[in-house]
């Protein structure tokens, strides 16, 4: 079981490394969206530092969304989804490998880049550990929830337009706890509650999402 998981993880990471645009584009998108805010609102430092947690979180959420459509689409187009579905290994475990790849390729670089954007938006330095921690837990959860939407829409020609409609409402709790975690840290408050809530969401998504993704993939592959 572990063998197939590792094989799939290795294959998808290799593929991602050979096509840099897959992970580079969402990252650039993330940076551009964040820079749009000071331009749109004005360079007022105190205002920017106040909205920074929300802006970074919304941008991270949108950037995660960008890579989601491709999560199963390539496999679907070239037929390797059939090999995935016909594997004797439990599909939900294989799905987890795909989601983990998505996070390593789209989520982790985002997390690593976020302190830089925090500086651009004049977020208080003391909030940066909270930003990193909340983004790690949050983007993992987003990848898991988003994979359900990706699996449901993969068989559709214009699934990419539908996907945000399906998953963005489900992203809202993560956005709420994530941005509030950063805002609390910037204000010098405790962030234990937010982090444990984010952790709770993550474990719930980890337990349920792979099953929903597996079922959705089997349905999408029928057509």
């Amino acid at each position: 079981m572990g063998g197939a998981f590792i094989t799939l993880l290795k294959r998808d990471l290799t593929l991602a490394m050979r096509r840099r645009s897959d992970w580079l584009n969402p990252l650039v998108f993330f940076v551009i969206v964040v820079t749009l805010f000071p331009i749109g609102i004005g360079p007022d430092g105190s205002l920017l530092s106040e909205i920074a947690p929300g802006v970074i979180w919304v941008a991270a959420l949108l950037a995660t969304l960008l890579g989601l459509d491709g999560l199963f689409r390539d496999d679907f187009d070239d037929g390797s989804i059939e090999q995935l579905l016909l594997s004797p290994q439990p599909l939900s475990v294989l799905v987890l490998a795909k989601v983990l790849t998505h996070w390593l390729v789209a989520g982790l670089p985002l997390v690593l880049l976020s302190p830089l954007l925090a500086l651009l938006l004049q977020l208080k330095l003391q909030a940066i550990p909270a930003l990193l921690a909340s983004l790690v837990l949050g983007t993992l959860t987003l990848s898991l929830i988003g994979a359900i939407g990706a699996a449901l829409t993969v068989g559709l020609r214009r699934g990419g337009v539908l996907l945000p409609l399906l998953v963005l409402p489900l992203f809202i709790p993560v956005l709420i706890f994530g941005s509030s975690c950063v805002a609390a840290a910037a204000g010098g408050f405790a962030i234990g509650a937010q982090l444990s809530l984010l952790g709770g969401l993550f474990f719930l998504a980890l337990a349920l999402a792979p099953l929903a993704v597996a079922a959705s993939l089997r349905i999408s592959a029928e057509s």
Partner: peptide, 8 residues
């Protein structure tokens, strides 16, 4: 569909 990855 052959299920081969073009980049591999």
């Amino acid at each position: 569909a052959d299920g081969l990855k073009g980049d591999l």
